[in-house]
């Protein structure tokens, strides 16, 4: 019988949030059309390293398995991306996996993306429609604008743009491109626009819009192809106008 073809994985592991990271190598049987998740499942089934040592199974997060939830983001061969949509056949071998260290590591490849969800709350990335009575339908959105806004709504809070950004790190409190682009999305919605100034003021505060250094890595890294740098530049324009409205006073600065 011909020898079984194998795939080699070098995985950066970490047992607890504060412990020292270490590497382990795994060699798993090859199957056609494998993705990184299916390889991790194989390691979970048989957690034995390449040199035969029994070890704990590698921990990772996953949910949708079709690149819409953002949970399985990790650094694969140096690039942050989703493990579910990364095909083993298209990677350079051995395959190196590491957690996205811009975020606190929980265990192995599992990270805590809370800071992104906190930012979304900070910038009010929603449309308030609650009242004490039925407010009825809001203004209509033109179809071509809806199609345009749909591109911005593809954001899955996966954290890849924060991992790619040189200005998001332990030395700065920059919220990163994803929550900023959400402000552009909700501000362009006819009902959302009623709270436009509130969101702009949130991103004109600490850790907001002005921290962008224009390295434009985010737009290159975004798995959903969201025009993040265009969003940031568009918000820069809005913020310039808002800044003058706030200072000199304006009836349009509510």
């Amino acid at each position: 019988m011909a020898e079984q073809k194998t795939v080699k994985f070098i995985i950066e592991r970490q047992d607890t949030p504060d412990s020292t990271p270490y590497q382990e190598t795994f060699e798993i049987p090859y199957r056609p059309n494998m993705n990184v998740i299916s390889a991790l499942m194989e390691i979970q089934r048989n957690p034995v390293t390449a040199d035969g040592k029994k070890t704990s199974p590698v921990a990772w997060e996953m949910n949708c398995l079709e690149e819409v939830c953002g949970a399985c983001s990790m650094v694969i061969n140096g690039k942050p991306r989703q493990a579910c949509s990364t095909m083993v056949d298209k990677l350079e071998h051995p395959i190196r996996l590491a957690p996205m260290r811009t975020f606190p590591v929980v265990r192995d490849l599992v990270i805590d993306r809370s800071r992104m969800f906190d930012s979304l709350k900070k910038v009010k990335a929603w449309i308030p429609i609650d009242g004490t009575y039925d407010l009825g339908p809001g203004p209509r959105m033109p179809e071509n604008k809806r199609q345009w806004a749909y591109e911005l709504s593809k954001c899955m809070t996966c954290g890849v743009c924060l991992e790619a950004c040189p200005n998001v790190n332990a030395n700065s409190n920059f919220m990163g491109p994803a929550p900023l682009s959400q402000v552009r999305l909700f501000n362009s919605h006819p009902t959302g626009a009623m709270n436009k100034a509130e969101r702009l003021n949130a991103i004109m505060g600490d850790g907001g819009l002005a921290n962008c250094g224009n390295s434009q890595n985010c737009v290159q890294a975004c798995p959903k192809g969201i025009p993040l740098t265009t969003s940031i530049a568009a918000l820069n324009r809005e913020a310039t106008v808002q800044m003058f409205r706030d200072f000199f006073g304006s009836d349009y600065s509510y």
Binding site: A164, P166, N167, S172, N214, N217
Partner: peptide, 13 residues
């Protein structure tokens, strides 16, 4: 406050 990552992201910008 920046942490350059030009080896991982070697783009012009």
């Amino acid at each position: 406050t920046a942490r350059p990552n030009n080896i991982r992201f070697s783009t012009f910008r």
